[in-house]
Computed example of a mutant assay.
Amino acid sequence: MAMNIALTTLHTWSAQTESFPKNDEIYQHTYPGFEIPNYDPETFPKHFHLCGKRKIIPDFLHLGPMPCLGMAPEAKSIIEALEPGVHEFFPVTISRKSGNQPILRTDGRVLDTPFYYCNVGCMLDAVWLERSRVSVHPGLIGGPPLVQLDLTGGRGYREPFSEVVLHREIVAGHHLWRGHFQFHRRIFISDQVAEEFRVRNFRGLDYYPVREE
């Protein structure tokens, strides 16, 4: 079973950052388009300030504007081990805007290593439309239809993917991907990655199961 992931809205583990000095490179792709963004490693932001006064930084967080996914080096290692060379990871240092209070990791260690912005390098359209309750809209000129969640049901907001089915043969062998024309911008992981994240008790993500058939 695949998982849709989203940066958590739970205040305890939700962290925001801002690039320093401000660099428009990341803002140009605030909402990635229908192609994988082509960032320039030389101009990509390398330093971020942690917003607010929180003591602990979660393992996943916003790097700049949503939905820019930042992750701890341990999460990066898991993804790279399963899909080497598929995704881009840009190292960034995170510090406080003012003061010298150390930033702590979730296990109590002082943050002394970079985090990484993950540029997801795989896009898939895997929804089994005939077996899913989704909202289908006309696509761009000459393009395929756009598929989004149908949240008109009573439990849609609590279990948004409970009535979505993915083609198992399409997602088989993939471990991290972003929706293309179906669930554009949403990020998915395999059950293997989800389990690796779970056993390490990573913080900062919400998980939504998605059936495969």
Rank of each mutant, 00 (worst) to 15 (best):
I57L: 15
P144K: 15
R158S: 13
D112P: 00
R186Q: 13
Q148M: 09
P21F: 15
V134H: 08
G52D: 02
Q28H: 15
K76G: 03
C68M: 13
A81N: 06
D191Y: 13
R198G: 00
V127E: 02
E213W: 14
V92S: 09
L61P: 00
S132V: 03
L176K: 05
K22C: 04
Q148W: 13
T106M: 10
Q28F: 15
P67F: 03
G85I: 01
G64H: 04
G143Y: 14
F48P: 00
Q148L: 13
D191M: 07
E18K: 14
G64R: 10
E83G: 03
T93N: 13
P37D: 04
L7E: 02
K22F: 15
R203W: 13
D125K: 09
D206Y: 10
R105M: 11
G121K: 05
T17D: 05
V193G: 00
G99W: 07
P145W: 12
Y208P: 00
T113A: 12
V110P: 00
I36S: 04
D107W: 11
P209N: 09
N201G: 12
K55L: 15
L7A: 03
L7D: 00
Y157Q: 11
V165H: 10
P209I: 05
T12V: 15
F181T: 03
C122R: 00
L124P: 02
L166G: 05
F161W: 13
Y39N: 01
P58F: 14
E196N: 06
R158N: 07
N23S: 13
E169I: 06
N4G: 07
L69W: 05
P65N: 09
Q28E: 06
Y208V: 02
Y31A: 09
A2L: 12
N201W: 12
I187P: 02
R198Y: 11
Y39T: 02
R133Y: 08
I78Q: 02
H47M: 14
E35G: 01
Q148N: 12
S95L: 12
R185Q: 09
R109V: 04
D59G: 07
R105T: 08
H49K: 10
V164T: 06
E74W: 12
W128Q: 12
L205S: 03
T12Y: 14
Y27T: 05
P21W: 15
F197E: 02
C122I: 01
L61Y: 10
H62Q: 11
D191E: 08
I79K: 07
R105C: 13
E80A: 07
L124D: 01
M66W: 12
Y31S: 07
M1T: 03
G154I: 10
T43P: 00
D206Q: 08
D206F: 11
P102W: 12
F183S: 03
R168K: 15
E196L: 13
M66T: 09
N23M: 12
G52E: 02
W13S: 10
R203M: 15
G52A: 06
R178G: 05
V86F: 05
V171M: 04
Q192G: 08
K46Y: 03
V164S: 06
A72M: 12
I187H: 06
V210G: 04
V110H: 07
L7Q: 08
E163G: 02
I5T: 00
M1L: 09
E18R: 15
S162H: 11
E88H: 11
E74D: 09
P102F: 15
E196G: 05
Y31D: 05
L176C: 01
H184C: 06
I141W: 13
